[in-house]
């Protein structure tokens, strides 16, 4: 696979959120503010790239029968490391993201890439695939976070955008808004972006 293909795949054609629809729980839950979304994206990209690298390094010595538990141990190790780092150096953000940090370990994207790509490709390409898929996830959660925060709280990155009189549509920072917005975004992404890129 060419390098440019890896990136096109991760960000557009097989975008984990907009196309594959995996790893959604964290996207819906954490995207109520832009800051949370970006932090989460960085955490996920970190774990994704690092576990892809390690799993790829181990691919020739990993027995097929126990590959899934081994993947899980590797991924869980990196997730726990991220947890510890955030608790020690970014306490408020750690509390804001709450249970979704340990839940990165069951984020389908990471296990899926380990199984589909990292266990069968070189370390370099696996790292790139991690970055590409991570960016696909990151772009999706950032767009959702931006829209939800602007319409739902009238702010961006915590900075109030509009004057006192603006009544934010709180629906959008609540669960229903997340579901609906994501549905709309997927519909848009599918028709506009994917079509254009396959031509």
């Amino acid at each position: 696979m060419k390098i440019s293909d890896i990136f096109k795949n991760g960000i557009i054609k097989q975008n984990p959120i907009f196309v594959q629809l995996i790893g959604m729980c964290s996207v819906l839950a954490v995207s109520s503010s832009l800051k949370n979304s970006v932090t989460m994206a960085i955490a996920v990209i970190g774990v994704l790239v690092l576990s892809n690298i390690v799993i790829s390094m181990l691919r020739k010595v990993t027995p097929e029968k126990i590959r899934i538990p081994i993947f899980i141990v590797v991924i869980a190790t990196f997730v726990t490391l991220v947890e510890m780092l955030m608790k020690a150096f970014m306490q408020p953000m750690y509390q804001a993201l709450g249970i979704f940090i340990p839940l990165i370990v069951v984020n389908c994207i990471i296990l899926a890439r380990a199984e589909a790509f990292a266990s069968k490709n070189s370390v370099f390409k696996s790292a790139l695939d991690g970055v590409a898929m991570g960016l696909g996830y990151g772009i999706a959660i950032t767009i959702l976070g931006t829209i939800r925060e602007i319409i739902g709280s009238g702010s961006l990155w915590g900075i109030q955008l509009f004057g006192e009189g603006f009544q934010p549509a709180a629906l959008f920072v609540a669960p229903p808004g997340a579901f609906i917005l994501l549905g709309i975004l997927i519909a848009i992404f599918r028709t506009v972006v994917v079509k254009r890129f396959s031509e």
Binding site: P176, A178, F179, I180, G183, I184, I186, A187, I188, R190
Partner: peptide, 22 residues
């Protein structure tokens, strides 16, 4: 409409159910 078929519509339906549960 074709663009809404499948998951987009499912998500919007989920959103409406979420409002009900709220």
């Amino acid at each position: 409409h074709e663009s809404l078929e499948g998951f987009p519509l499912t998500l919007i339906a989920a959103g409406l159910m979420s409002i009900a549960f709220a």
